[in-house]
């Protein structure tokens, strides 16, 4: 990390922008995709609506290429209903590769090694604290397709923000993502970190996030 930082400073004499998305590129591609035992789960029930609150830690999202070479590599697929990473071609909601997040809804965008879409997952973004998002009413949802991801890529466009001064990718605080899962349930997600153990000095391409899932199909409530 620091190595790259210094390199960037030394080499890109003229520029303020540097090395985006190239942080800690040396992720071990053979990482086994297992659910981390640290993940916490809480269930609360009010008026027959069951909300499942989960904290997911260290979902690896390796990618190949970068540094001028076309980006590729399998996306890491995640299932909100089970709360674990899956290799299933169909039973997934969102998938991660580097800083890119794909939805199992809409069309392929055209990037390499993209998973086929066979669900109807949609996403919407709300500004606020995690707790403040209470309902999905009146939200407008997007899917992947038309050459773009439902969660826009690039710094400050979607879920993260890249700081050229530190060469670090940070989840934008206050961006809450509401997904409609392939089963039709609503879930709100807050991304926490892009680094292993939520530590900016460790390896990148590890997602940690909180989510609250309402398992009652069609129910728009996302808080007690």
């Amino acid at each position: 990390m620091k190595k790259l930082l210094i390199l960037c400073i030394a080499l890109n004499l003229s520029l303020l922008t540097s090395c985006e998305e190239d942080d800690k590129a040396n992720v071990n591609e053979e990482q086994t995709l297992v659910d981390t035992p640290d993940n916490k789960e809480e269930v609360s029930e009010t008026n027959g609506v069951q909300l499942i609150n989960k904290e997911i830690i260290n979902i690896p999202a390796p990618q190949t290429g970068g540094r001028g070479v076309p980006i590729g590599g399998e996306f890491t697929k995640f299932d909100f209903e089970t709360g674990i990473v899956t290799t299933s071609e169909t039973d997934w909601d969102i998938a991660f590769r580097g800083t890119t997040i794909a939805l199992n809804g809409g069309e392929v965008t055209g990037t390499n090694d993209e998973p086929a879409r066979n669900g109807n997952v949609e996403v919407s973004v709300v500004n606020g604290t995690f707790e403040s998002v209470k309902s999905t009413k009146d939200l407008k949802f997007e899917k992947d397709g038309n050459g773009a991801f439902g969660i826009p890529t690039g710094s400050n466009n979607g879920w993260y923000n890249y700081n050229p001064a530190t060469n670090i990718i940070l989840a934008i605080p206050g961006k809450i993502f509401i997904f409609k899962t392939r089963k039709g349930n609503y879930v709100k997600v807050e991304f926490l970190s892009y680094y292993q153990d939520q530590d900016n000095t460790k390896e990148g391409r590890f997602y940690s996030f909180n989510y609250v899932l309402n398992q009652k199909i069609g129910s728009t409530s996302l808080a007690k």
């Binding site: 604290t129 934008i172 605080p173 206050g174």
Partner: peptide
């Protein structure tokens, strides 16, 4: 109220 920050310790998002 469009700007939020994440507390480095609690990891909680606050306005």
């Amino acid at each position: 109220k469009e700007v939020f920050a994440r507390d480095a310790i609690t990891k909680k998002t606050v306005a």
